[in-house]
């Protein structure tokens, strides 16, 4: 009789999803609680626009709930991200999003005396400037918690390439933020 949805595995929750029952709704709620941040982070990072990200994010969960019964369980996280990926790339195809690297410099100028919080902001903005080839694997790795094998499967690349792209993304971020980082560490 104990239905503690917190203790259910993803697979067990997934099996509840029939789209109609109370159990299905509760299972969906638990899934939402587990993965909404990750999915939203993906949408936000890939699209770089909060409103568009929210629209895509909503669509991801709606589609997931409606279509989950027709999918075979593998990984809820991967399934959600695959929905998000398709939606986000459709949005990106329709809308060219330009992120000017100068925005990083502007923030940097504003916050050059800043501390860790500013560092986070700078990293976030710098991430937006990355090419999707590098940004997406990094987002999937760090923001979505996927392993390299899952990233490779989602992105259609090898595991080694996924790993390399994550590393390259970090290197590029470091490169973009170098003036700021050097100033910080030169002062110490």
């Amino acid at each position: 009789m104990t239905n503690n949805y917190l203790n259910y595995s993803d697979k067990e929750l997934f099996e509840f999803l029939d789209g109609t029952s109370d159990e299905s709704k509760l299972a969906f709620t638990e899934i939402y609680n587990r993965y909404s941040r990750r999915v939203f982070a993906y949408c936000l990072k890939v699209l770089g626009d909060k409103q568009k990200a929210e629209d895509a994010f909503q669509e991801v969960f709606v589609r997931f709930y409606k279509n989950a019964p027709s999918y075979r369980f593998t990984s809820i996280n991967s399934l959600l991200i695959s929905f998000a990926r398709n939606l986000c790339f459709n949005v990106k195809r329709d809308t060219k999003i330009f992120v000017d690297i100068s925005s990083v410099l502007n923030v940097y100028k504003t916050y050059k005396d800043a501390d860790k919080e500013e560092m986070i902001k700078l990293v976030s903005i710098a991430l937006d400037t990355l090419d999707d080839r590098y940004k997406e694997p990094l987002v999937l790795k760090v923001y979505n918690g996927l392993g390299y094998d899952e990233i490779s499967e989602l992105c259609g690349i090898s595991t080694g390439a996924a790993r390399t792209r994550v590393f390259r993304a970090k290197d590029k971020l470091k490169e973009i933020l170098k003036p700021y980082l050097e100033e910080i560490y030169d002062q110490r």
């Binding site: 982070a41 976030s124 923001y143 470091k174 933020l177 980082l181």
Partner: peptide, 19 residues
């Protein structure tokens, strides 16, 4: 240290994002 700072920034940024 710069690599650590970037890593820290990414990890923290990930935590701060919520719908």
């Amino acid at each position: 240290k710069q690599s650590l700072a970037v890593e820290f920034g990414i990890q923290r940024d990930a935590l701060d994002i919520a719908p």
